[in-house]
Computed example of a mutant assay.
Amino acid sequence: MALTTLDPKTALVVIDLQNAVVALPGTPYSTADVVARSVELANAFRKHQLPVILVRVDTTPGDSLPGRTERPRPSGGTIPPGAADIVDELAGHPEDIVVVKRNWGAFYGTDLDLHLRRRGITQLVFTGVATSIGVESSARAAYEHGYHVTLATDAMTDLNPDAHHNSLDWIFPRLGESGTTAEVLELLAKTHA
C-alpha cells in the first residue's frame, strides 16, 4: 500500500538501534544505512516538535524468557558495557523518549502506550532492526492498540532477507502503510508546513 498521509500527531518509533544490534550485518540494507535514515527521520520529527521514541532491548541477569522454542535464545546473561546503549548518532536528545523493552515488541511490559496516549499520538512511523522481529512485533501491537501504522521500509533491515521480505510483502500491508524515508519526510513537511 502506498503512503497516503501522516496525522498531525505522529511519533517516530525507532526499534533497537543500539550498539550491539547495529554491529550485526543487515539485509537488504546495512545497519549503518538504517541508522543514517533513522537519524534523518528523527531530526525531521524533532524539527516539527513531534515525539521520537528510542526503543532499546535490555535484559536483567537471571531473566529467562517464557515458553519453549526450537532455537536457543539468549538467557539474560551479562551484557558488555555499552552494548545496550542507543547509538551515538541518535542518543543525546533530552526531548526524546527512551523505552526499555525486555521482549521482542515495544509495547508489552513497557510504558510506551502511556507516553503516546498522554501526547495524543494517533500514528506511528517505525524504523529499526530487525524487520521481522522487533519492528514487526511492535507494529502489530501498535495496530492492535488502535494506532495508524506507517513503516519506513528503507529504514529497517533484518538478519534474514526472506524474513525481511515476508514482513514487507505479507504482514505490513495488513497493518498499515509503507513508504520510503523520502516519502515519509515529504508527507511530514506537507503536514507541518
Rank of each mutant, 00 (worst) to 15 (best):
T180S: 15
P80Q: 11
A91P: 03
T78N: 12
Q49T: 12
H192W: 08
A20F: 11
T78H: 13
P173R: 08
P81S: 11
E183L: 02
F126I: 05
A182H: 06
T78F: 14
A106M: 02
D63L: 09
H115Q: 15
N160L: 07
T127A: 05
L175C: 08
D154Q: 07
P25V: 07
H164V: 03
D7K: 14
A155E: 04
E183H: 03
P72L: 11
R140Y: 11
Q49K: 15
V149I: 10
P161M: 02
H93T: 07
V55Y: 05
G176E: 00
T127E: 01
D162T: 12
E95D: 14
R140F: 08
V125M: 06
A142L: 06
L54Y: 03
T59C: 05
W104I: 03
D96T: 12
P25W: 07
L41P: 01
E144M: 13
L188S: 04
P51W: 09
G120D: 07
V22H: 03
L17C: 08
D169A: 13
A42L: 09
G67A: 08
D16Q: 04
D154H: 06
R102T: 13
V129E: 02
V55L: 06
E183K: 05
L159T: 09
A23T: 01
Y29F: 15
M1F: 09
S178C: 11
